[in-house]
Nucleic acid binder design. Structure first.
Length: 160
DNA sequence: GCCAACGTTGGC
DNA sequence: GCCAACGTTGGC
């Protein structure tokens, strides 16, 4: 099956792309997703080798800051089993796990973030899920066309 | 810090 | 199964 593309949000105060760069092997669990629609994208859609944009949300300048690679199949999110974790969910059990995660590996960090504002201004991204009014999904698919469009924004001098 | 928009919960 | 109340997300 062809490679799929994704966008994954994180609050940089909790986990930033620099945290991923500093992590052992530049890899990390992408845990704590507690939304069914986002969970379904992870559980039913993600495969090893897929690529994702790393998006910083709830911060001074929201935007895409780099890319990561999916390096494990979807697996039960252990933080849901841990009573001490802020992501603990008593309704998720070992036999019937409710929440899933993948591991990601750092690929690249952009010299300058591709800001939410600049994404909104790009007419080629009309209809992109991230830009939809009221969107709150923390994991969402990105079409190959959108992926290419966004990567071009990174390399274009006029966006600097 | 505000608040619009959305998702979840729980009573009925 | 409806829907009001509540909690959360996330841009501004």
């Amino acid at each position: 099956m062809a490679k799929q593309y994704w966008l994954m949000k994180s609050e940089p105060d909790a986990f930033s792309i620099d945290d991923l760069i500093k992590a052992k092997g530049q890899t990390s669990h992408w845990d704590g997703v507690r939304n069914y629609q986002a969970r379904n994208f992870i559980k039913n859609g993600m495969k090893v080798g897929d690529l994702a944009f790393f998006y910083h949300s709830s911060c001074k300048v929201p935007g895409i800051v780099g890319t990561v690679e999916i390096i494990t199949p979807p697996q039960p999110d252990p933080s849901a089993f841990d009573p001490k974790s802020p992501y603990f969910d008593a309704k998720s059990t070992q036999t019937h796990p409710r929440w899933y995660m993948v591991d990601v590996k750092f690929k690249q960090k952009f010299n300058d973030p591709i800001t939410l504002e600049s994404l909104r201004m790009n007419p080629l991204l009309k209809g992109f899920t991230l830009l939809n009014k009221g969107n709150r999904l923390s994991v969402m698919p990105v079409s190959f066309a959108q992926w290419q469009t966004i990567l071009k924004m990174m390399s274009s001098p006029k966006d600097k």
